[in-house]
């Protein structure tokens, strides 16, 4: 079976200057893959390059079965095309439409006339039901993140990219959201690529893990192995700083 997403030797970066080098990565159906690493390791850059918001600087990139060979130009077309074929990207800033209601946000995330998908998405987040007539800008941080996830789900994605879901959220909210992500992968067979700061939370739901360090893969492996080998992970992830837990 072909993976939903495969990167082979991909360089990614801004203005033609790479910050991620020679990245090999795959995400298969129903799989949750976590992309970890400290600040500035190149995680967000990788996601932006996959969804076409940044031009790819080199290497082979196959998303949802189609090779990407467009080079530096016309990335906007590629983003549109991928979005229509089932790629959902929840960016770091969430990109919600604050002036629209939560319900309207969801409607824009779904295919034309696919009200059923909106309903299903709402079922995953019961809290949003009562808020669907409120402007997205008036929701709290956690509710906004739920809305961003629900909006991505409403499009019935086959591949889901989630950037820094826990940023600015209370631990309890993160604990509620992450299992939902796991459930999405299990129930719909969608692949998930998850960028995360909170390592234990990400390890708890992921199948496989890549750890980036200064733009290169430092560790790659099964989440279960890494859960057991915390020392290995921390040495690479935290560098020379003493662990405090």
């Amino acid at each position: 079976m072909n993976p939903l997403l495969s990167l082979s030797g991909v360089d990614a970066g801004y203005d033609g200057v790479p910050v991620v080098y020679d990245l090999d990565l795959t995400v298969g159906e129903g799989e949750v893959v976590a992309l970890l690493g400290s600040n500035g390791a190149g995680k967000t850059t990788t996601l932006l390059t996959i969804s076409g918001l940044l031009p790819r600087l080199g290497g082979e990139l196959t998303v949802l079965g189609a090779g990407v060979s467009d080079g530096r130009h016309r990335t906007e077309r590629r983003t549109l095309d991928l979005a229509r074929r089932g790629l959902a990207h929840v960016p770091e800033d969430r990109a919600l439409f604050f002036e629209l209601t939560a319900g309207e946000n969801l409607r824009l995330g779904a295919q034309r006339g696919d009200d059923e998908a909106v309903e299903t998405a709402l079922e995953s987040f019961p809290r949003l039901h009562e808020l669907s007539h409120r402007n997205a800008g008036l929701l709290s941080g956690g509710e906004q993140q739920m809305l961003a996830l629900a909006r991505a789900l409403a499009g019935r994605p086959r591949l889901l990219l989630i950037d820094e879901m826990s940023l600015g959220l209370a631990p309890i909210v993160v604990e509620q959201l992450l299992p939902t992500v796991r459930a999405i992968a299990d129930d719909t067979g969608a692949g998930v690529l998850l960028v995360e700061q909170q390592v234990p939370a990400a390890l708890a739901i992921a199948d496989r893990v890549y750890v980036l360090r200064r733009g290169r893969v430092a560790i790659e492996g099964n989440a279960s192995d890494l859960r057991r080998r915390r020392d290995l992970l921390e040495a690479s992830y935290l560098g020379d700083i003493d662990e405090d837990k």
């Binding site: 400290s38 600040n39 940023l167 600015g168 935290l238 700083i241």
Partner: peptide, 12 residues
Amino acid sequence: EPAAGLDSAESV
């Protein structure tokens, strides 16, 4: 939130 987005080393 002075520590938002900082990694553990920076936070310490």
